Amino acid sequence: MTSTNTTIAQRVELMHQSMTGQIPESALAAFGAEQADLTSDGIPEGVARAGTAMPDADLLDVHGNPTGLYAAFAGKPAVLVIYRGAWCPYCNLALRAYEEQLAPALTERGIGLIALSPQKPDGSLTMAEKNDLTFTVLSDPGNQIARALGVLTAPTDQVREAQRSLGLDLSAFNADNGYGLPMPTVLVIDGDRTIRWIDVHPNYATRTETTDILTALDILD
């Protein structure tokens, strides 16, 4: 059992230990190779920088209703969490940690918290319900935001085959029926819709820690 004070990295390590013997070695090897390559490649050139405008996009809420990113900001500062989908165990760990450790602090400061993925609205609803999330969860069909920020990627053929061997076909989960995925990214956006801080994790097995986000919020003062 994890404590609410446990870091995301610690939660991931516990999850990795529990996976031993639960996932075929061939799939683990494919995922491990992908993660190593993503780490080696690093952050892509052209990723959005602090001080630039946050792009808007046509999004969907958990019920499939049209909305926009600016509408979700509601004119106030926000932390935007871009994740892969409810099917991703690392995303579940991260969003659960943000609910426990980040959401209360943001509410006290009048700062919004929004999670965004390319999955269909029912996947967003699953993510919210499964992890008892109190913050806004939205779908971004076609990875509009990830593409605009320069953090769009896609699994290799070997990884897609490993995913299928585990019963996962991304095209059935993504709202555009494609295979594009965002690199996990957290942004701090001010009330003028300007990016004040951005943290990109090419290797999806690592995530932005809550303490780093809370420290970054100081730039809004």
Rank of each mutant, 00 (worst) to 15 (best):
P121R: 05
L113F: 01
E129M: 10
H16W: 15
L220E: 11
A33Y: 03
Q101S: 04
T67I: 01
A53M: 15
R49Q: 14
E13D: 07
G75W: 05
V188L: 03
E45A: 12
L133F: 00
A74Q: 13
T134G: 05
Q144K: 14
L166G: 07
R160V: 11
I145F: 00
A103F: 05
T2W: 15
L168S: 05
M54I: 06
T136G: 11
T52A: 12
K76L: 01
P89C: 05
Q163L: 10
F135V: 02
N177W: 07
A74C: 06
A9G: 06
E129C: 07
L220G: 09
Q35F: 15
A9E: 15
T4N: 14
D176S: 08
L125G: 07
V137W: 00
D157G: 12
N5C: 09
D41G: 06
I114D: 00
T126F: 02
P44T: 14
D56H: 03
G75L: 14
N92G: 14
A72N: 06
F135Q: 02
Y90S: 02
L106Q: 04
L38K: 15
Q10E: 12
D212I: 02
G21C: 11
V12K: 15
A29V: 09
I189S: 09
P44V: 14
A9Y: 03
E100G: 08
D212P: 06
L166Y: 05
L116N: 03
A36H: 13
S124A: 11
L168P: 03
G123F: 12
T185L: 02
E129D: 12
D58R: 15
V188E: 00
E25H: 07
Q17W: 06
T7K: 10
T6S: 13
D122V: 13
R84F: 01
T206G: 08
T20P: 09
L95M: 06
I145H: 00
S40C: 13
A36M: 14
T194S: 13
W197G: 10
Q10G: 14
A154V: 09
I111T: 00
E34M: 14
N177C: 11
L60A: 13
A50D: 05
T206K: 04
P184Y: 08
I189W: 01
T107H: 09
D132A: 07
Q144N: 05
